[in-house]
Design a protein around this nucleic acid. Structure first.
Lengths: 191, 191
DNA sequence: CATAAATGCAACAGCAGTGTCGCAGTTCAT
DNA sequence: ATGAACTGCGACACTGCTGTTGCATTTATG
C-alpha cells in the first residue's frame, strides 16, 4: 500500500517510463543519465521512484504487458469469430508492440516481473487458436503451441522491418492481413 | 599481413572464441574475465590477440558467418532441387545457429564486421526461393523478400525453443521438416 | 639447443555507471 | 497560506570493467 502520488510526481513517473522506452529501445545499455535527460528530469529523481535500474525496467515491462493485454482484449478474442479476432488482435498487438518494443522484450524474459502476464496472454492466444481450429480455420491436426510460436515469430519479424518505412510496411492493418494469411496458408501455391 | 601464429597461440585463439560464444550466449554482458576463465586463459592473453572487446566480438561474428556460409553451401542451394536444398539448408543452418547463437546475432547487427557476409547470404537465400518459385514450389505471386523474412523468423523461433529439449525439438532434421512445411503451407486446412 | 614467441601474474590508471545524501528552492494539496 | 511533498543540484563513495605494462617463466620451432 503506497499512498497516492501527487499530481506532478505522477507526471514525472510517466515521463520517465516513456523516455526509458524511447532511449532503451535504441540502446538497451544506455545510462540512467541519458534516460533522465530524455525525460527532462534529474537522474536522482529516477532513483527516488525506482530503487534500482532493474526496478525501472520491471515497472516498464509491467506497464507494457498491461497495455498489450488491453490491446488483445479489445479484439474480443473469445467471442468474435476466430478469423476476425485473429486479424484484429494482430493489428492491435502490432500497434502496441511498435510503441513498446524494448519493454515487451523485457517482459518475455523468464526472470521479469511481467513474465507471468505474458505467459497468461500466450495461454489466451492458444485458446483463440483452439477455437479457430474447431471452426475449421486451422487444420484439425494443427499443433497449437507450434502455431502460436509461429504467430509470435511473424509478429516479431513484422516489427523488425518496421524500422524502415514503406507505406505497406507501416500500416498495422495491412501487415496484420499479411501475417494472418501467411500463418494460415504459407508461401506455397494455393491448391 | 600478419605472420603465421605459433601452434599454441592458435589453440588459445580457438579456446577464446569458443569460450566467448559459450559465455556470451548465456550472458551477453559478461566480462572478459569470465570469458578468460572459461577459456582457461589469463585475461591479458585475450587483450594480446584482440585490441578491444569489440574486436573479439567482431572476430567471433566473422568466424560464425563463415561457418554459416559453409553450412548453406553444403546443401548445394543453387544446383539441388529447391525443395531438397531448402530442407537440407534449413537443417544445416539449425545445427550451426544452435552452436553460434550469440555470434550470429552479432553478425546481423548493421555495424558488425560480418554484416556484409550476412547480407550476401540473404541474397543467396532469395535466389534459392526464386528457383523454388519458378518450379512451382512457391506461389507464382509470392513476395520473395517477405518469404525470406518469414523463413528466417521460423528458424529463429525454432532455435529459441531449443533451450528446452524434447526429442522432436532437438533433432535438426525433424525441425527442418516442420519449418519448411509451415513456410509452404502454414497452419490452415490443406485444400 | 638456442632463440623467439607466447603466456601467466600482478599491478596500475582510467573511466563510467550506480546508488546515496543533504540542502535549497518549487510546486501541489487542503 | 501553510505545511508537506516533490524536485534539481552538487557532491560523494563504491564498484566493476577495460586496457596497459613489466617481468619471470614456459613452450614451440628451426
Amino acid at each position: 500500500m503506497t499512498r497516492p502520488l501527487r499530481a506532478d510526481a505522477e507526471r514525472s513517473m510517466r515521463s520517465i517510463l516513456e523516455a526509458a522506452e524511447r532511449v532503451l529501445s535504441v540502446q538497451p545499455t544506455a545510462s540512467l543519465e541519458q534516460v533522465a535527460e530524455a525525460a527532462g528530469v534529474a537522474r536522482t529523481t529516477i532513483h527516488r521512484r525506482f530503487a534500482s535500474r532493474q526496478a525501472l525496467v520491471d515497472a516498464l515491462a509491467l506497464a507494457a504487458a498491461a497495455q498489450l493485454r488491453d490491446a488483445v482484449d479489445s479484439a474480443h478474442p473469445d467471442t468474435a469469430p476466430p478469423l476476425v479476432a485473429l486479424h484484429q488482435a494482430t493489428a492491435n498487438v502490432l500497434r502496441t508492440k511498435r510503441s513498446w518494443r524494448f519493454a515487451l522484450e523485457q517482459a518475455d524474459i523468464p526472470g521479469s516481473a511481467a513474465f507471468a502476464d505474458q505467459v497468461a496472454l500466450a495461454q489466451r492466444c492458444v485458446e483463440l487458436l483452439g477455437r479457430a481450429r474447431d471452426q475449421g480455420v486451422l487444420a484439425a491436426d494443427a499443433d497449437l503451441e507450434w502455431t502460436r510460436r509461429v504467430f509470435y515469430a511473424l509478429i516479431g519479424e513484422a516489427i523488425h522491418g518496421h524500422t524502415f518505412d514503406a507505406a505497406d510496411e507501416t500500416d498495422p492493418d495491412l501487415l496484420a492481413g499479411r501475417i494472418v494469411d501467411t500463418l494460415l496458408h504459407g508461401a506455397g501455391p494455393r491448391a
